[in-house]
């Protein structure tokens, strides 16, 4: 399995532990990921306005970058990048006149032919690798660890981009079960973390984070596994604000699902970056003798 891979800006800085764990897991599972030789920021959010073509240039450039290396499928890890690129590629499919306008605007580039398919890493894990194959690679099962998956918004919504049931997704649960962990069913796993409101309304994020974490805890979760770097920032880093605002709030470790996969697969090395998390997951992982 060979894929052209688009990392996105945040995977090169704030969420570099997401990228390193993804790459380690991919290597173990035989997924070859070749980073695009040239790429730019995707814009992180898809512009939904019909007349706002300028904000479609960024995703179009990335699809063009993928086209240049002859990729039929473009593998994306960050769920915000996935959503933006997927929605853009669907827009160009549905509205060829818009694509033509943009192709005309980018007169220093080749035309985008609309043939790149955007896929998410979870999709590859489930559909190409298979959950059984993941289970086979587990050498250090996460037995007893109670993990609540958290999907956030942009993996599942809008419907056209979702590769799982938008209201009741199960792909992360399936992976967690394959790793030997207890997957806690939490209804708030598809609720929004507040997203970009974190810049100018962090008190609201403090509330969202508290609600989501308390809901997971009340169902027996000891940690949350997620896949989006912005959800991670809001759920992990903004716990600082929740702590400030609510004296009865207790923190919870937040990990990327790929970090848990790497742990269960017995991958050693400097890929985890546990020290980068606001809530240190190491005491809990030590309790379960995982590190």
């Amino acid at each position: 399995m060979k894929y052209a891979y688009y990392p996105g800006c945040t995977l090169k800085s704030y969420a570099d532990n997401l990228e390193s764990s993804v790459l380690a897991v991919a290597e173990k599972l035989g997924i070859q990921m070749e980073e695009l030789p040239h790429w730019t920021c995707c814009g992180t959010v898809f512009s939904q306005a019909d007349d706002d073509l300028v904000h479609q240039i960024a995703p179009l450039r990335i699809l063009l970058d993928a086209q240049k290396v002859g990729a039929k499928k473009l593998l994306v890890v960050c769920s915000m990048c996935y959503n933006t690129l997927k929605q853009a590629s669907l827009l160009f499919e549905k509205k060829p006149d818009k694509l033509e306008t943009l192709n005309l605007f980018l007169d220093d580039e080749d035309d985008y032919l609309g043939e790149v398919e955007v896929v998410h890493f979870l999709q590859v894990l489930r559909d190409e690798v298979g959950i059984e194959e993941i289970a086979k690679q587990v050498v250090r099962p996460l037995t007893g660890l109670n993990v609540a998956p958290y999907y956030g918004c942009l993996l599942l919504r809008p419907q056209e981009v979702a590769f799982d049931e938008p209201e009741r997704p199960t792909v992360i649960e399936e992976i967690l079960v394959a790793l030997g962990a207890e997957a806690i069913m939490d209804p708030l796993k598809v609720e929004c973390c507040g997203s970009y409101q974190t810049v100018n309304n962090k008190e609201i994020i403090a509330d969202r984070t508290r609600t989501i974490i308390n809901s997971a805890r009340s169902r027996g979760a000891e940690m949350i596994a997620l896949d989006c770097p912005l959800c991670d920032f809001n759920l992990d880093f903004r716990q600082k604000e929740s702590e400030k605002k609510y004296t009865d709030f207790f923190t919870m470790p937040i990990l990327y699902y790929t970090q848990l996969m790497a742990l269960a697969m017995g991958i050693n090395g400097d890929i985890y970056g546990f020290d980068k998390h606001y809530v240190d997951p190491r005491p809990l992982l030590k309790e379960y003798e995982l590190i």
Partner: peptide
């Protein structure tokens, strides 16, 4: 805020 329009490079 960069939208990758490439006007700067041009």
């Amino acid at each position: 805020r960069c939208v990758s329009c490439n006007m700067c490079t041009r």
